[in-house]
Design a protein around this nucleic acid. Sequence first.
DNA 1: GTATAACTACCGACCGGCCGGTCGGTAAAA
DNA 2: TTTTACCGACCGGCCGGTCGGTAGTTATAC
Lengths: 213, 213
Amino acid sequence: MRAQKKSAPNNERLAEIYRTAAQIILRKGYDATSVNDIANALGMTKAGLYHYINGKKELLFDIMNFGLWELDEEVAAPARAISDPAARLRFLVGAHARLVTRGQGAITILVDEVTALTPAQQRKITQRKRKYFDFLRGTLDELKAAGKMQDVHTTAAAFSLLGMINWLSRWFQQGGALDEEQAAEQIVRIALHGLLKPAKLKAVGSRQTAVGS
Amino acid sequence: MRAQKKSAPNNERLAEIYRTAAQIILRKGYDATSVNDIANALGMTKAGLYHYINGKKELLFDIMNFGLWELDEEVAAPARAISDPAARLRFLVGAHARLVTRGQGAITILVDEVTALTPAQQRKITQRKRKYFDFLRGTLDELKAAGKMQDVHTTAAAFSLLGMINWLSRWFQQGGALDEEQAAEQIVRIALHGLLKPAKLKAVGSRQTAVGS
DNA sequence: GTATAACTACCGACCGGCCGGTCGGTAAAA
DNA sequence: TTTTACCGACCGGCCGGTCGGTAGTTATAC
């Protein structure tokens, strides 16, 4: 049997289809996006597009898996190699945020549309998301065990992290006051140190450089 | 003999329609929700529902305005009465988060679906959202001017706050490990103090002043 | 006190249109 | 000759929305 689904030779065009579809769906939402919309954006007809895909749901499913694969490749996998939990957390947040601001990887956000999938597809996606979430929370647990964390619930903290990061896709825009790197750095700072200066303490040694405002 | 039910004038029923519709739309998304879905959930037919509403879009618009009104009543208005910016920020975050966890107010999240509206409606909603956002960021600006804030961009910070709070609706569930109040308190802590303990210094006495309400 | 007009709260049946999806091609490349 | 990459035409179904009712509840008129 030949690999029919995994990695086909017509990879190039298929990847372009995923990327284009992801952008449109990200902007308009899955249900509001018709297969025609996607086909037109690619300069083809709906029937032509169906040469590549097996259905609207399956397209969404594939895109989500692609997004999660990207997340694993660029964020989770490198993070696993970092043994210090504080450094790992910093990397996780920064790299994930960068993946979102860099736009292309905004695909990850599509994970929101999980309800549009069949139950079986939903289960698979949820499982993969869960694995990433557990990794993130595990890092927080390590930090807590080492006495390096504030007194907060690690599950709530992990979700809050994801909330901040995922929300980036709604407000970040190319050419705005912050570039991709700066925006990601802001998220890291807010997540790790919060908004307020620690109680009565002043300057802990080195002043950080401002980004703006 | 079962006139137990109060005669519901127009407003009562309309409010019920808004509440029911909001819950369904929140769960399934605007486009995936048909007018029939909403009507059935209310125990009527689509034609019957159209006796109360002028169209699907207008229903969404009304619900959004209701959500924003709630946000203003329960969060922004009381916050305006707090002069100390740190106390005000703490209240804003906590009250807004509580509005989300208490579920009913989750309506606010519908603001996401803004793209489904007509341009004119969109403008109005965006304007109201903008007003709230400016108030939030303004509080951060005050804090910064007073030297009480970490070195972060206030716009990015305000959006991150909203991200954390709005994300609550996706993971918080009644009967989970955290109750409504606890979840909101976690958000406040993470937002204000971050995840990591401040650098190398510890214990500055036990100043855990609980400002605000 | 009753006739009746006016109004409220719905419903069944229906409409045009777009949706996801199919099918039988075709034209060029391999 | 087969395969690849597409297209035009078409389909059943559900969508938002309309319309002409109707049963029940007041409001008014005598």
